[in-house]
Write a protein that binds this DNA or RNA. Structure first.
Lengths: 103, 103
DNA sequence: TGATTGGTTCGAAAAGATTGGAACTCACAG
DNA sequence: CTGTGAGTTCCAATCTTTTCGAACCAATCA
């Protein structure tokens, strides 16, 4: 019985560049990443743009970002905290995030 | 009667970041872009990896790259020359290509 | 112990992308 | 002209992604 609380995150070394690019190639996902660039957010806080996005859809967007190694999704009480894996990504793909998020 | 010889290329200003990222999110397309980073190539020269890729498939990969504003595809006799639109892309998305192609 | 809140997962439908054969076009050689 | 070479376009099959309601789960509150 997999407890659903802790979601799997890829090791940054296993993340392929093309997967990262794919995850960022969707405007809604890119926007989420931009928001997270300023610091962690809960699911509810995140996605201030797209306010009426169904939660299953938002959850799926997050799944793609998580599986691509872009965001960490960790439980915190009954909410979840989303964090951009900036340092790790900078290590793995120097300059990529900065060029995409703009200086 | 649209002559097929000259293919349409988007103005770099009209190119969306997400479209560029999508075009690069496919390993075969990314590889093509890497090859073109060293200078223009004809269709036949390009894709030294993937040597037995059907030509219609290769043509389609090129179309995606062209429509995303990444490569220019121009006739030269009965062949076609493919050029990475590096300068324009650097202008529009500073640092992006360098970080993706590696220093 | 419910009931509620904040979120994930499932499942199925719709939309979009990829693949590749076949037909086509155009430039050039003979 | 006719043939050939280099490539594009068309089309259909297949595969992948997206979308979202519904069911579910775990933590907290009353």
């Amino acid at each position: 019985m997999t407890t659903v609380t802790n979601l799997p995150h890829p090791d940054i070394g296993d993340v392929q560049l093309t997967e990262v690019l794919f995850a960022l190639s969707d405007p809604a996902r890119l926007e989420i990443v931009r928001e997270l660039a300023d610091g962690p957010l809960t699911m509810a806080e995140c996605g201030s743009t797209n306010p009426d996005l169904p939660k299953s859809t938002k959850s799926h967007l997050m799944k793609v970002l998580r599986e691509a190694g872009l965001v960490r999704n960790e439980p915190d009480g009954r909410r979840r905290v989303l964090t951009l894996r900036k340092d790790e990504l900078d290590q793995a793909f120097p300059g990529l995030l900065d060029s995409i998020l703009g200086d």
